[in-house]
Amino acid sequence: MSKKDLIICRCEEVTEEEIKKAIREGADNVDAVKRATRAGMGLCQSHTCYTLIVKIIHEMTGKPIKEILPATHRSPIRPITAEILAKSKNM
């Protein structure tokens, strides 16, 4: 397997190359990379790939790691079926 095909986002199968391309085009934070590539939009919601993306952004842009924040976390933080979510009252 060539390095070019290296997967970063396991859920959406986004490669390192695609992420680097997005960064070259100006995406300099996790959220921007996500919007540009779908990395982090899958089932796990960027849980696994987020640190890898941070590292790539840092290496390519020189932006300090501490300034590269994770994408926004929103409910539900685990996949839950619509039926179960809907099956509740008084919320």
Partner: peptide, 10 residues
């Protein structure tokens, strides 16, 4: 917001 046994609760 929690999910337990097929339901959600607040």
């Amino acid at each position: 917001g929690i999910q337990n046994n097929g339901r959600t609760y607040t």
